[in-house]
Deep mutational scan, measured.
Amino acid sequence: ADDEVAKLLVDAYRKNDEDKLEEVKKRYNISDEQVKRLIRKVL
């Protein structure tokens, strides 16, 4: 599931889509710190 979330985050990140990032964060209840970590893992 982590990889799936990471893909969604990276996708939103690449598109610079703040709304999507927020949506994913809320849906999976993850912190900014986790977001950064997941994005770093993929990029």
Score class of each variant (00 low, 15 high):
22 E>Q: 11
16 N>F: 07
19 D>E: 14
1 A>T: 13
42 V>G: 07
5 V>W: 12
31 S>F: 02
12 A>N: 01
24 V>E: 01
12 A>T: 02
33 E>G: 06
6 A>G: 07
36 K>V: 11
30 I>T: 01
41 K>H: 10
13 Y>R: 02
35 V>R: 01
41 K>W: 12
35 V>N: 01
37 R>Y: 09
25 K>R: 10
38 L>E: 01
33 E>K: 06
39 I>Q: 01
20 K>D: 04
26 K>S: 08
42 V>L: 14
28 Y>P: 00
14 R>N: 10
43 L>Q: 05
8 L>E: 07
12 A>F: 05
34 Q>G: 05
38 L>T: 03
3 D>I: 11
42 V>E: 08
3 D>G: 09
33 E>M: 07
1 A>N: 13
41 K>V: 07
23 E>M: 10
12 A>W: 04
15 K>T: 12
11 D>W: 06
41 K>R: 13
28 Y>E: 00
19 D>A: 15
1 A>V: 15
37 R>P: 02
42 V>K: 07
23 E>C: 07
27 R>N: 05
5 V>E: 02
33 E>L: 06
19 D>I: 13
4 E>A: 11
8 L>G: 02
20 K>W: 08
43 L>F: 10
39 I>M: 07
19 D>N: 12
19 D>F: 12
36 K>F: 08
26 K>T: 09
17 D>S: 04
23 E>I: 06
24 V>C: 04
3 D>L: 11
3 D>N: 09
5 V>Y: 05
38 L>W: 04
27 R>V: 07
5 V>M: 08
18 E>K: 15
13 Y>C: 09
31 S>N: 08
43 L>N: 04
7 K>M: 12
42 V>D: 03
36 K>H: 11
13 Y>P: 01
38 L>I: 14
35 V>P: 00
3 D>H: 10
20 K>Y: 09
21 L>S: 01
32 D>P: 05
29 N>C: 10
18 E>G: 13
30 I>E: 00
6 A>T: 12
21 L>H: 01
32 D>K: 04
26 K>M: 09
16 N>M: 09
30 I>K: 02
42 V>C: 11
39 I>K: 02
37 R>Q: 13
2 D>Y: 14
6 A>H: 06
26 K>L: 11
33 E>A: 10
6 A>I: 15
4 E>Q: 09
22 E>I: 09
6 A>Y: 14
2 D>K: 07
3 D>A: 11
2 D>N: 11
2 D>M: 14
42 V>I: 13
7 K>A: 13
40 R>I: 11
1 A>Q: 11
18 E>H: 15
33 E>I: 07
27 R>I: 09
22 E>A: 11
17 D>V: 03
39 I>S: 01
17 D>Y: 03
32 D>I: 05
17 D>G: 03
7 K>R: 14
6 A>Q: 07
41 K>L: 12
24 V>S: 01
29 N>F: 05
20 K>N: 04
1 A>L: 15
39 I>N: 01
35 V>Q: 02
37 R>E: 14
18 E>M: 15
38 L>R: 01
8 L>S: 04
43 L>R: 04
31 S>Y: 01
12 A>K: 00
5 V>F: 06
33 E>C: 09
22 E>P: 00
20 K>E: 10
14 R>W: 13
14 R>V: 12
12 A>E: 01
4 E>V: 11
31 S>L: 03
1 A>E: 12
9 L>S: 00
32 D>C: 10
11 D>I: 05
40 R>M: 14
19 D>S: 13
9 L>A: 02
5 V>R: 03
33 E>S: 08
19 D>Y: 11
34 Q>A: 10
35 V>D: 00
7 K>E: 08
26 K>R: 13
7 K>I: 09
5 V>I: 14
15 K>N: 14
21 L>D: 00
9 L>R: 00
27 R>A: 10
16 N>P: 03
28 Y>T: 00
6 A>E: 09
11 D>G: 03
28 Y>C: 03
9 L>T: 01
40 R>H: 13
7 K>L: 11
23 E>V: 05
31 S>I: 02
35 V>S: 07
26 K>A: 10
43 L>E: 06
22 E>S: 08
4 E>G: 07
29 N>S: 08
15 K>I: 08
19 D>T: 12
36 K>N: 10
41 K>E: 09
24 V>W: 05
8 L>N: 02
25 K>E: 00
17 D>P: 02
4 E>N: 10
29 N>R: 07
30 I>C: 06
1 A>S: 12
23 E>Y: 10
23 E>Q: 10
43 L>G: 03
22 E>F: 07
10 V>D: 02
31 S>K: 04
32 D>T: 07
36 K>Y: 08
3 D>R: 09
39 I>L: 13
22 E>G: 05
2 D>T: 11
15 K>M: 13
8 L>C: 09
1 A>P: 14
7 K>N: 08
38 L>M: 10
17 D>I: 03
34 Q>Y: 12
4 E>C: 14
16 N>Y: 06
11 D>N: 06
11 D>S: 05
10 V>R: 06
42 V>H: 12
28 Y>D: 00
18 E>W: 15
16 N>I: 03
37 R>N: 12
27 R>W: 06
7 K>S: 08
40 R>E: 13
34 Q>R: 05
39 I>E: 01
7 K>D: 06
36 K>P: 03
8 L>R: 05
21 L>G: 01
9 L>M: 02
43 L>K: 04
2 D>A: 10
5 V>D: 02
1 A>Y: 15
34 Q>E: 14
29 N>D: 06
36 K>D: 11
3 D>K: 08
29 N>A: 07
32 D>F: 04
38 L>H: 02
14 R>L: 15
23 E>F: 08
5 V>G: 04
15 K>V: 08
24 V>F: 10
14 R>S: 09
12 A>I: 04
22 E>T: 09
18 E>T: 15
13 Y>A: 03
13 Y>L: 10
14 R>P: 01
39 I>W: 03
43 L>S: 05
28 Y>F: 11
14 R>Y: 13
32 D>M: 05
16 N>V: 03
8 L>H: 05
12 A>V: 03
4 E>P: 08
39 I>G: 01
24 V>H: 03
26 K>N: 08
34 Q>H: 08
6 A>W: 14
28 Y>K: 00
33 E>R: 06
32 D>Q: 05
17 D>M: 05
8 L>I: 08
20 K>S: 08
15 K>D: 11
36 K>I: 13
37 R>T: 10
29 N>M: 07
21 L>V: 07
40 R>V: 08
32 D>H: 05
42 V>M: 14
41 K>M: 13
35 V>A: 15
13 Y>M: 08
5 V>A: 06
3 D>C: 15
37 R>I: 13
34 Q>W: 10
29 N>E: 05
16 N>A: 07
12 A>M: 03
7 K>G: 06
13 Y>F: 11
7 K>T: 08
14 R>E: 10
28 Y>R: 00
10 V>I: 14
16 N>K: 12
18 E>I: 15
38 L>K: 02
24 V>Y: 14
27 R>L: 13
3 D>Q: 09
12 A>H: 03
29 N>K: 09
42 V>N: 06
13 Y>T: 02
33 E>T: 06
36 K>S: 09
37 R>S: 12
43 L>H: 04
20 K>F: 11
40 R>T: 10
10 V>H: 07
28 Y>H: 04
35 V>K: 01
42 V>T: 09
24 V>L: 15
42 V>Q: 09
3 D>V: 10
21 L>Q: 02
19 D>H: 13
16 N>R: 13
14 R>F: 15
12 A>Y: 07
25 K>Q: 07
18 E>R: 15
14 R>H: 09
11 D>L: 06
14 R>Q: 12
4 E>S: 09
8 L>Q: 10
14 R>D: 05
37 R>D: 12
30 I>R: 01
11 D>T: 04
13 Y>W: 15
30 I>F: 07
16 N>E: 06
38 L>Y: 05
33 E>N: 06
16 N>T: 03
40 R>D: 12
43 L>C: 12
37 R>W: 10
20 K>P: 01
9 L>E: 00
39 I>T: 02
40 R>Q: 13
21 L>I: 14
34 Q>V: 11
4 E>D: 11
3 D>E: 10
8 L>W: 05
24 V>R: 01
25 K>A: 06
41 K>G: 08
26 K>Q: 10
10 V>L: 15
9 L>N: 00
42 V>A: 14
19 D>K: 15
42 V>S: 09
7 K>H: 10
15 K>F: 08
28 Y>G: 00
8 L>M: 12
5 V>K: 02
35 V>H: 02
38 L>V: 05
17 D>W: 06
27 R>T: 09
8 L>A: 09
1 A>C: 14
22 E>L: 11
7 K>F: 11
34 Q>D: 14
27 R>H: 07
28 Y>I: 01
13 Y>S: 02
25 K>L: 03
7 K>C: 14
16 N>H: 13
16 N>S: 07
8 L>V: 06
35 V>L: 13
12 A>Q: 01
12 A>D: 01
33 E>H: 05
16 N>G: 15
10 V>Q: 06
33 E>D: 11
16 N>D: 06
30 I>P: 00
38 L>D: 00
2 D>Q: 09
